[in-house]
Design a protein around this nucleic acid. Structure first.
Lengths: 102, 102
DNA sequence: ATATATTTGACAGAAATCGTCAACAGAAGA
DNA sequence: TCTTCTGTTGACGATTTCTGTCAAATATAT
């Protein structure tokens, strides 16, 4: 199973496209150091960066965003004993609030 | 379905126990203002506070913690289109990492 | 009216986050 | 070798965000 971080995934994609950090950083208009740290999970990614990288690497945007979001969840509650149950409740709450609002 | 916040739930419990904010705040060793804001979701709760309140109100600790954690998730990704899918991936990741590590 | 309970906003200090930068190390190439 | 390219690391202030404290304002009850 995919125990791969979004950072690792993005690094692989970059290497497959044979792009150096330097060039990608320019496209994103961020410092090379930051991008390096993002790929190694030393600094958090953002939705915007992930989206831009999906375009640059011509990779499915939703797949990357799902991975990105899922890791935010894991980081937030992954170590809690009640994590699974909490997610089930959260899922119901989200589905519910979507039926109502808009 | 329960669209109730953990804050609302805690307020109800406090009222059922006929305890003023003042007294509970003393037990928790925090300012009344903070507790007031926590009950109205104006300030974030903590795991420790929720646990202590469960004891004070003699209410099921896990139920409150699950509600507390679920709301952290909802707050984190609830507005994302891909929230549901992200949670499913997160669930797999958490289950996986639990099989491995201890 | 008086006392009790709760809410609200402002405040300063602490802590976390941010982007920038320079120095470093390693690999590749000339 | 020397040089260049690539990636990593840590430090540094500048913000920004979070925290607890407090007093005043409001609401509720006796």
């Amino acid at each position: 199973m995919s125990t791969e971080t979004i950072g690792n995934k993005l690094r692989k994609l970059r290497e497959e496209n044979a792009l150096p950090l330097r060039k990608v950083a320019v496209l994103l208009d961020i410092d090379v150091a930051i991008l390096s740290k993002m790929e190694r999970s030393e600094r958090p990614l953002t939705k915007e960066i992930v989206t831009q990288l999906a375009k640059i690497y011509k990779h499915d945007r939703e797949e990357l965003l799902v991975l990105y979001l899922s890791q935010k969840i894991v980081k937030e509650i992954g170590e809690e004993d009640l994590a699974i149950q909490a997610m089930h409740v959260a899922e119901e709450q989200i589905k519910y609030q979507r039926k109502k609002h808009k």
